[in-house]
C-alpha cells in the first residue's frame, strides 16, 4: 500500500472539465505520485486558475514557486499548488515561459496570498507577474544584481578567502 491516497474520481472530473474548457491550450496532464499535474500555456494560466477556483472549488492557494530548467526552449516555469478543502483534493498547475519574456498574469486578484509568493518568484527567478500591485524584491536586497535561484547563479559567497583550491582540491 503506498503511503498516500489517490482521489481518482476527482482527478478524472478535473481533467475532463479542463480538457473540455481549454482544449489544446492544456498542454499536458499527468498524475505524479498522488497529485494531478496540468501544464497550460502561460497566456491562459490566469483563466485556468479562475476556472479552477470558481467552477471546481479549488478555493485555497497552497503555494506558488518558480522553476528553472536551463537549456530548454521554455526555461522558466511557475508552479501553482491548489487545494480544494471541501474535497480534500490537491492539484498542481504549471506554466512555462522563455527566458527572454518571463511574464505571467498575476494571481493576486484571485488570492490575496499570491502577493508575496509572486514577489518571491520575481526575486528568485525574475518571473514578472503582470498586474501585481507591488512587484519588488522581497527577500534579497532591493539592489541585488541577479536572480539567485536560477541555475547559473553560484551559491557560495564570493568574498570568502579561506577556501582556495589548493587547500581543498576543488
Amino acid at each position: 500500500m503506498p503511503a498516500f491516497a489517490i482521489k481518482a474520481d476527482r482527478d478524472q472530473l478535473v481533467t475532463d472539465r479542463l480538457t473540455a474548457a481549454f482544449g489544446a491550450d492544456l498542454l499536458s496532464h499527468e498524475r505524479l505520485y498522488d497529485v494531478m499535474c496540468f501544464t497550460v500555456v502561460k497566456e491562459r494560466v490566469h483563466e485556468l486558475l479562475a476556472f479552477l477556483k470558481n467552477e471546481l472549488d479549488f478555493g485555497f492557494l497552497t503555494s506558488i514557486c518558480g522553476m528553472h530548467h536551463p537549456g530548454e526552449a521554455l526555461e522558466l516555469g511557475l508552479v501553482y499548488h491548489l487545494h480544494s478543502m471541501h474535497n480534500g483534493h490537491r492539484i498542481r498547475v504549471k506554466t512555462y515561459m522563455a527566458l527572454k519574456d518571463p511574464q505571467v498574469p498575476t494571481a493576486t486578484d484571485l488570492w490575496a496570498g499570491a502577493n508575496w509568493m509572486e514577489r518571491e518568484a520575481w526575486d528568485f527567478f525574475g518571473i514578472k507577474a503582470v498586474g501585481h500591485p507591488n512587484l519588488k524584491r522581497i527577500l534579497n536586497m532591493e539592489d541585488f544584481p541577479a536572480f539567485p535561484m536560477r541555475k547559473d547563479y553560484p551559491l557560495e559567497d564570493p568574498t570568502r578567502q579561506d577556501k582556495n583550491d589548493s587547500m581543498f582540491g576543488r
Binding site: 527577500l139 534579497n140 539567485p148 547563479y153 553560484p154 551559491l155 557560495e156 559567497d157 564570493p158 568574498t159 570568502r160
Partner: peptide, 12 residues
C-alpha cells in the same frame, strides 16, 4: 563565521 550557510545572502 556564517556557519552552514555559505550562501550569497549570508554575511560570513
Amino acid at each position: 563565521s556564517g556557519g552552514i550557510f555559505d550562501s550569497y545572502s549570508v554575511l560570513q
